[in-house]
Design a protein around this nucleic acid. Structure first.
Length: 983
DNA sequence: GTCCGACCGTA
DNA sequence: TTACGGTCGGACG
């Protein structure tokens, strides 16, 4: 950029709100999508750009950019937490337009600029000053008074709605001060819309008058005592500091670290087909016609762009403050039946989100996948083409091929991306020749160097305006993070499927591809082989890798186009946006941090366990009279019930003797020696093989810590699961088992903090079933099981026998599990009739429970699913089964799911909020583990005291404000050097 | 080598 | 009586 050039900067975010309120509402005819602001925006851009080609008009742009707010979390919030705190969520019918306007910007072939942590105004200020510095002219398309401080002889504002220029004299006329004094003026007057406080009692007129008299704010504050009016003087003195803070808030940042420079804003020619496709999709007929004409495109030959989905997809962060609860798009009301629905090209009626889903589903099945069409990217020039294309499309599907399933150990072999269905490519990076001699073949030729690939991809993968989609994004995030890339923003087809269809089968890409696209993708196993003869992916030929990897990206993109609109259609967008998507980076960081495990402690425990087990083995062989495999339930059953003839039920559907711990305990209680020994032996060997022997193998050689993996889409209820290793089943119930927890330790100078919800599921039950006695008991903080026992058996809580309380506790848990007389009888080792009587008594005392259970079953039968208090669904397609046992099982699960699932949702919410809360409190605690109702943190000794209240606060308030529970949540938290003592 | 059932650790 | 994952033995190929 040089002297004489002219930069146009459009305040995109300012425009959206202004246009929304100023223009009449407009909806797309075919489906009611609100597009008023989009329409105004497109017309404005069209006008500005048309004049750009008209050489008779003097003020025409040579450079052009549209600037947006990224999120409400800006540096101003750090200075003043209440900044913009009074902003309510944007109107519902404005929300889809945020994404659309960004797409419109791209359709017009204009740079679309936003930056996390900064407001559009700061970016505008920075670019304006940069352009001015080289002598170029600047026109800011906005009428916002906050930008008026930027006006200079070279920098003008333009109010596009009033078609009015704003220059220095215009500012003076309107505000009584020149642009350079606008900052001080705003600091005094404050701004109620942004919640900038200012000085009470001082409006623009007074402020201008004071600035006229004193020159500037600092002078005024220093000489405030000279002011004659008593009230005004007092206010200025009292609120001097507030005015200084306000000045910081209204001062635009002219040194924002920008990712895109002004030289990149040079005005490019229109891309006619792309612009027409977008306008056509918006159904802006007049503008479509004009654009087609001006760019020499035959509009009838252009397919409308796919924008609805992107509108939904791009409601991911920009302009939305995710900390508010009510800012997510809800499914638009269906068009009423008497409104004729226009038909789309393929004949489908497309009037509601559901209809869109239907047509997408049909399309997906008919659009065939052609693996031979995929590209292999082998040089920098080709890669640049794909990056440009990806940048322009704003949405890419993405997949990495790696050497290991463990993201903490793996190396990238190649990377695939898809920009639209059928358009996908593979970038080989680290393929080696397969004919490995001892030296290993070495890198295959014609691969772009790894460093170069990541250097080129980083801006794309971190670009806020390009949505990255993957199937199982957490894995991709972790892999990319190892290469220094902060992958965002994200969408995950596995999680979308999980939110939509939890309980309806697997969410793996292969099964979704089969289910939705009617296609079987290449099997991973067919490429790498299996077992001993299997190879790592870097040995796969680049040709086959291209077909496989690009197909995965292609399939991911197709699934996304199909599944994402269902979130809106089914009213599940907020579940996805609140409980799934934001958790991806949170869990990824937890996995990345890992936890320290003391090898020596485990090794010593292994030795102890081996010794104890060996001693018992001797006894068992002696009692059994022969040397058998104690670990074989089959052999053990034959000895106990065959050879020795002990009484016991056969059980197990395979006809084997059952040798469960419960059964052996009962036999032991009757005085038999062998069963007792077997139970003890099993406990010891279980602890040894599953924990003390196995855990050291999970210590990562690089980090020296253990990194579990959390599955986000594995359970039907919304719980996480943990594997490799499973850190959600580390022993605690027996003293022997607990010792294993002493091996989980904090780094020197640090502590582990364990914070767990007390009785969260019973509290959820009290809330959802509206049980007055339970609610009251939780409000009073009394022992819930004792209260239950007292209600049921008429025993006073004081001096209650422990057996009575134990039974009530078992019943309480039974209720949560969808109780049956059979199960309760088993649990308490009592006759089924007695258990049945307990249940009847319970239902008598708490009739709301019975009602809740019946209502839940009825709901499940009617809908095929049940819901948590946050709207998460768990599907039970077999709840109408004609098999009574099977049906009863589904009913119990359906009763349990809303309770277990709501608790799971609550802790997910807490986890999403935890890092921002700790950051805000300037605490360095790291969240390491989640165990369903417990969170484990690691932090320095000095910060422990300050950290615990923050953790508790976040956890105890996690349901708010979406759900106001009728019972308080209570969290116990403790710190210690190891997990055993912290819990 | 792969799969399944029994068993058992957690919430 | 709910929800998981890991280890083992044993049967299958």
């Amino acid at each position: 950029m040089k002297k004489g050039d002219h930069l146009f900067l459009v305040d995109g975010s300012g425009y959206i709100f202004r246009a929304y309120h100023a223009l009449p509402p407009l909806t797309r005819k075919s489906d009611g999508l609100p597009v008023g602001a989009v329409s105004g925006f497109c017309n404005m851009l069209w006008k500005l750009l048309r004049e750009a080609r008209d050489t008779s008009v003097r003020d025409t742009p040579t450079h052009f950019a549209v600037i947006f707010d990224y999120s409400a979390h800006t540096f101003r919030k750090q200075i003043y937490p209440d900044y913009k705190a009074n902003r309510s969520a944007p109107p519902e019918d404005l929300i889809p337009q945020f994404g659309l306007i960004r797409q419109a910007t791209k359709a017009f072939n204009l740079p679309c600029i936003e930056k996390d942590g900064y407001e559009a105004d700061d970016l505008i200020a920075t670019y304006a000053r940069q352009a001015e510095a080289v002598g170029a002219e600047v026109t800011i398309i906005s009428s916002d008074k906050d930008l008026m401080q930027l006006v200079t002889p070279l920098v003008t504002m333009y109010d596009s709605m009033k078609d009015k220029q704003i220059r220095i004299p215009d500012v003076i006329e309107k505000w009584g001060v020149p642009p350079e004094k606008m900052i001080d003026l705003q600091a005094m007057t404050g701004d109620s819309t942004d919640n900038v406080p200012g000085i009470p009692g001082i409006g623009p007129k007074t402020a201008a008058q004071l600035l006229e008299e004193f020159g500037d704010l600092d002078t005024l504050l220093a000489r405030a005592s000279e002011i004659k009016q008593q009230k005004r003087r007092e206010n200025i003195i009292q609120y001097a500091e507030q005015a200084r803070i306000s000045r910081q808030l209204v001062t635009l940042k002219t040194d924002t670290p920008v990712d895109v420079g002004i030289e990149d804003f040079s005005l490019e020619p229109q891309n006619g087909p792309r612009l027409v496709a977008f306008l056509k999709a918006m159904e802006f007929n007049a503008l479509t016609r004009r654009a087609a004409e001006a760019t020499g495109v035959d509009a009838s030959e252009i397919e409308p762009a796919n924008v609805i989905i992107q509108a939904v997809a791009e409601a991911h962060g920009p302009d939305l403050d995710i900390s508010n609860e009510d800012d997510l798009p809800k499914p638009p009301a269906p068009v009423t039946a008497n409104v004729p629905s226009p038909k789309t090209a393929n004949g489908n009626i497309q009037a509601t989100p559901a209809d869109l889903v239907k047509s997408r589903t049909d399309q997906a099945l008919s659009a065939k996948i052609d693996r031979s069409s995929y590209a292999t990217i082998r040089d920098v020039a080709a890669l640049q083409v794909w990056i440009d294309e990806a940048m322009a499309s704003g949405v890419i599907a993405f997949d990495t091929e790696t050497t290991s399933a463990d993201p903490m150990q793996t190396e990238v072999v190649g990377l695939s991306l898809a920009t639209r269905p059928g358009r996908a490519a593979y970038i080989p990076i680290n393929h080696v020749s397969g004919d490995g001699d001892l030296l290993g073949g070495g890198l295959v030729a014609h691969q772009i160097p790894e460093r170069e690939v990541f250097r080129m991809l980083k801006p794309l993968l971190e670009d806020a305006s390009v949505l990255k989609i993957a199937h199982s994004m957490k894995y991709e995030w972790l892999v990319m993070h190892r290469y220094g890339i902060d992958l965002h923003p994200l969408d995950d087809t596995m999680l979308i499927s999980y939110v939509l269809d939890a309980g309806e089968g697997s969410h793996s890409m292969d099964s979704l591809c089969d289910r939705w696209l009617g296609h079987k993708p290449l099997a991973y196993k067919d490429l790498i082989g299996s077992g001993k003869s299997s190879v790592t992916f870097d040995k796969v030929s680049i040709e086959r890798a291209t077909e496989y990897a690009a197909e995965d990206a292609d399939v991911t993109l197709r699934l996304w186009r199909l599944l994402k609109p269902r979130l809106v259609a089914d009213g599940l967008m907020s579940v996805y946006e609140r409980l799934e998507r934001p958790l991806i980076p949170v869990l990824a960081r937890m996995e990345e941090r890992g936890i320290s495990v003391d090898r020596q402690i485990l090794s010593r425990l292994s030795g102890d366990l081996a010794q104890s087990a060996a001693a018992i083995e001797e006894d068992i062989y002696r009692l059994a009279g022969e040397k058998i495999n104690i670990g074989s339930p089959k052999q053990m059953g034959d000895i106990l019930f065959g050879k020795m003839g002990l009484p016991g039920g056969s059980k197990t559907k395979t006809g084997q003797w059952s040798t469960s711990a419960q059964l052996l305990e009962d036999l032991a209680a009757e005085g038999h020696e062998l069963p007792r020994k077997i139970v003890d032996w099993r406990q010891l060997t279980k602890l040894k093989s599953t924990y003390t022997d196995a855990l050291p193998g999970y210590i990562n050689p690089r980090t020296k810590r253990v990194h579990t993996s959390y599955a986000m889409a594995a359970t039907s209820t919304g719980r996480l699961s943990s594997s490799e290793p499973n850190l959600q089943n580390i022993p605690i119930r027996t003293s022997e088992g607990r010792k294993i927890r002493t091996a989980f330790i904090a780094e020197p100078g640090n502590k582990l903090i364990s914070a767990d919800y007390s009785q969260i599921e019973l509290r959820v039950l009290a809330h959802v079933a509206e049980i007055p006695q339970l609610t009251q008991a939780f409000a009073d903080g009394i022992d819930i099981h004792a209260m239950t026992a007292s209600e049921m058996f008429g025993v006073p809580v004081k001096d209650m026998p422990s057996e009575v309380r134990r039974r009530a506790k078992a019943i309480n848990f039974g209720i949560i599990y969808g109780i049956s007389a059979f199960g309760l009888a088993n649990q308490l080792s009592i006759p089924r009739e007695e258990a049945g009587q307990y249940i009847r008594t319970y239902f008598d005392r708490f009739p709301g429970i019975k009602d809740y259970m019946e209502a839940t079953k009825a709901f499940a039968r009617q809908h095929g699913y049940v819901e948590t208090i946050f709207g998460r669904r768990a599907h039970y397609p077999e709840i109408r089964s004609s098999n009574p046992t099977h049906r009863a099982f589904n009913e119990r699960a359906a009763i349990n799911a809303p309770i277990q699932g709501s608790a799971a949702d609550i802790i997910r919410r807490a986890m999403v909020r935890m890092e921002p809360a700790l950051n805000e409190a300037k605490l360095s605690a790291r969240m390491l583990l989640q165990v369903h109702d417990e969170l484990i943190f690691e932090t320095s000794d000095e910060e422990v005291e300050a950290t615990i209240p923050v953790i508790r606060h976040v956890m105890e308030n996690a349901a708010m404000p979406a759900v106001s529970l009728s019972v308080p949540l209570h969290v116990d938290a403790r710190a210690a050097h190891n997990w055993d003592e912290a819990h």
